[in-house]
């Protein structure tokens, strides 16, 4: 060949938006999966406030009595954890999407097309961020309906949403990798379940000071605790603790970077 045709190496932005469109369409067509990402945190919040809240509320806030006062205090306390729970739930769903695409042959089709390679996984990740934000708004709306009166101003609310979006983005890359690593769609839906345990093993539902030494050490050093504490401060409008905020952001960036690198290497791996 005398003239080498320069092929378009895809258009990253346009291709990612097309893949985002595909994923939002899928979310609309498969409302079961989307419903779960909103439904589970909502049920969890109702359960924890109305069943456990009366008793547990007295344990998380000094001077609060059991019953109605306890429920109100507990609603205050667990809202950040439920927000994170919604985020984790959304991220989990992208593992299933990635596994479905990889096993159905459509990912192979995309790989043989002249499109930006990053868009094939980037589209689902962005779609998940959108779904995660919908779930977070639903949870916060429910919290307000149940009587939560956050002191946060507009900036605080935006910061809560921004942090939630960032955490969803980071966890989604991790979950995409889990989905690609799974041999089947069933495995892909199970592996990220481990993540749902983390809000419980942190400061999400009870203060870490009440835990035995070993569990407490883990709770204080795991990634979700600084994220929960930062969200808590933002909602309460009490001003941020610098070290906690930095830890929250550092963990988020680290998880996102590791998840992205892992996803990328799995995407490039040959599938037989």
């Amino acid at each position: 060949m005398t003239a080498v045709a320069v092929a378009p190496a895809g258009r990253p932005l346009a291709d990612t938006l097309t893949m985002l469109r595909r994923n939002l369409l899928r979310a609309v067509r498969y409302p079961g999966l989307t419903g779960f990402t909103v439904g589970i945190p909502v049920v969890l919040m109702l359960l924890f406030v109305y069943v456990f809240g009366g008793a547990l509320g007295a344990g998380v806030a000094p001077g609060v009595t059991a019953g109605a006062q306890g429920r109100a205090a507990y609603l205050d306390y667990i809202t950040p954890a439920i927000v994170l729970f919604a985020v984790v739930g959304a991220a989990q769903s992208v593992a299933i999407t990635a596994a479905m695409d990889a096993t159905s042959g459509i990912m192979a089709r995309f790989k043989t097309m002249a499109i930006a390679p990053g868009s094939v996984l980037g589209g689902p990740v962005l779609g998940t961020v959108v779904q995660g934000l919908v779930a977070v708004v639903a949870v916060l709306g429910l919290a307000v309906a149940l009587g939560l009166r956050p002191a946060a101003g507009a900036g605080g609310w935006l910061a809560v949403a921004g942090l939630a979006a960032l955490v969803t983005f980071a966890l989604s890359w991790l979950c995409v990798a889990m989905g690609l690593a799974a041999r089947s769609v069933e495995t892909a839906s199970n592996t990220p379940m481990l993540l749902t345990a983390l809000p419980f093993l942190g400061s999400g539902f009870v203060p870490v000071e009440t835990m035995p030494a070993g569990v407490r050490w883990f709770a204080e050093h795991q990634p979700f605790t600084p994220v929960i504490e930062t969200t808590r401060s933002l909602l309460a409008g009490t001003g941020l603790d610098t070290s906690t905020t930095v830890q929250a952001l550092a963990w988020t960036v680290a998880i996102g970077a590791a998840g992205y690198a892992w996803s990328r290497s799995l995407y490039r791996r040959e599938r037989r």
Partner: peptide, 28 residues
């Protein structure tokens, strides 16, 4: 006319592939 290892993008721009596993999106 393009080498699949050196110029995969150029190859992809020229080809269409229908594999054994059907590559359609069931939900759409």
């Amino acid at each position: 006319g393009h080498d699949v290892v050196a110029q995969p993008e150029a190859v992809r721009a020229a080809i269409g592939v229908t594999g054994q596993v059907s590559a359609v999106d069931d939900l759409l």
